[in-house]
Write a protein that binds this DNA or RNA. Structure first.
Lengths: 137, 137
DNA sequence: CCTTGAGTCTGTAGTTACTACAGACCCTAT
DNA sequence: ATAGGGTCTGTAGTAACTACAGACTCAAGG
């Protein structure tokens, strides 16, 4: 049995393949309460269905967009309770966007210093180096 | 006794204050071999001098520039052996610069998606939200 | 001299978000 | 019946710190 045979009753590997998620990560998300505890077969195997696929995709997309697990937990709690409003979700998104922009600014600052310093290097087989001077100064 | 009294024989807190480094981080860097094991007083207190200040500043500046511990370990090994050349250091720096640029590109991609999606939000007290749709799609 | 408070010592646990085992089951196909 | 996969559990490892508990040491005040 598997994914393509019956259309329901996905095993863990099936869910992983459908979502592109790592096999172990699924168990991890369950453990930390991001994914619900799925029903089990008599012998203890997890059984998933399309709702699990949807939820896992939600989490994975959120992670791709740089949301932390805690941020996603907040989002999912709103959704799970059915109490979310566009205003709330937008506020969380914009907070996250601000964090992303701060990280970009930080990395750009770093990039400038690195590029400027490396540009001063002779690149020769000599021990003295502007990069080391910049670090040791 | 302390930092300002004798000019030598810094204790751990003195080194921390002079470099802005967290107290515990100093011990951590020692443990992972980034800082040398310092001499000790008879009762076991670590005793630092200016060479330790220089080395710790080197590490901290490198970290500020986003070098990983392993990257800095490579740099420091060259310096410790006195075998570094500007060419080698420049190569390591440019590799790191490429990594930084890749991270910036990644974050910019994320920023675009977040900004575009959030811009579609009505921001009203309604349950439907473009952000949730983007995640659940 | 003794106490008190601050500093230091050690080892260990917590953080984030996974990833990768080991050793025991289970299930299916030959 | 058995061989091979897949699955189960719990645990340890990753990066780079940070924070504690409990014991010890040290200098200054009374």
């Amino acid at each position: 049995m598997g994914d393509h045979v019956s259309g329901k009753g996905l095993k863990r590997a099936d869910l992983a393949r459908r979502t592109g998620c790592n096999l172990e990560t699924i168990r991890y998300y369950e453990k930390i309460g991001m994914m619900p505890d799925p029903p089990r077969t008599a012998s203890g195997y997890r059984v998933y269905d399309v709702t699990h696929v949807g939820r896992l995709r939600f989490i994975l997309r959120g992670r791709e967009l740089g949301f932390s697990i805690e941020e996603l937990r907040g989002l999912l709690q709103l959704v799970d309770r059915g109490t979310q409003t566009c205003a709330e979700v937008k506020a969380l998104t914009e907070q996250h966007l601000a964090d992303v922009r701060a990280k970009i600014a930080d990395l750009k600052r770093i990039e400038k210093v690195l590029a400027a310093t490396a540009a001063q290097c002779s690149g020769k087989q000599v021990p003295e180096c502007p990069v080391l001077e910049a670090l040791a100064s």
